[in-house]
Amino acid sequence: MICLSKNEQGAELLANYLAKTLDAPRTAELARHIQECSDCRGLASVWERLDEFAVPEVSPGFDARLYARIAREEARLSLRTTWKSWRRWLWPPVAPLAAAAAVAALVLFLQVPGTPDAAKQANPTQSSKAEIEQVAQAVDDLDLLTPIDK
């Protein structure tokens, strides 16, 4: 008997069962087992609930905005690290001046509003990669859904 919790391919089996892509005998066997096994029943009900969860559509500029935010965070972190290493080498009277300049630069950098275009400039490779993957997936689906010629 197939027990999902004891089977290495349990998750895949359950996904196929819920997507109704298993063959009829296996579907019947699994359905019987789920009735009898409380562990598998619990697992199946969690997956069914997950399946009911509607995934919100991602807005077109989402990836670009996300990567811009990551780039901003990375820049802020790297600025902090660089500052720590410089502090040891700076001549003491210059340090306050440099600190003031760095703070002013940081404030200016954080004040600039992030737009999708700015986001692309911040990390063009990651952003365009995510976008082209999205395009490729949509092209796959469109091609699959193209009416079959009789």
């Binding site: 997507a19 109704k20 399946d51 469109l142 193209t146």
Partner: peptide, 29 residues
């Protein structure tokens, strides 16, 4: 005509839940 049919069918497909999209994809293939 084919492009028009695609216009009708794609939004309906996109509105399916991910697991159901998987099942429909497999069936079409």
């Amino acid at each position: 005509e084919q492009a028009q049919r695609l216009q009708d069918v794609y939004p309906a497909f996109e509105s399916l839940r991910p697991a159901r999209r998987l099942a429909v994809r497999a069936e079409i293939q």
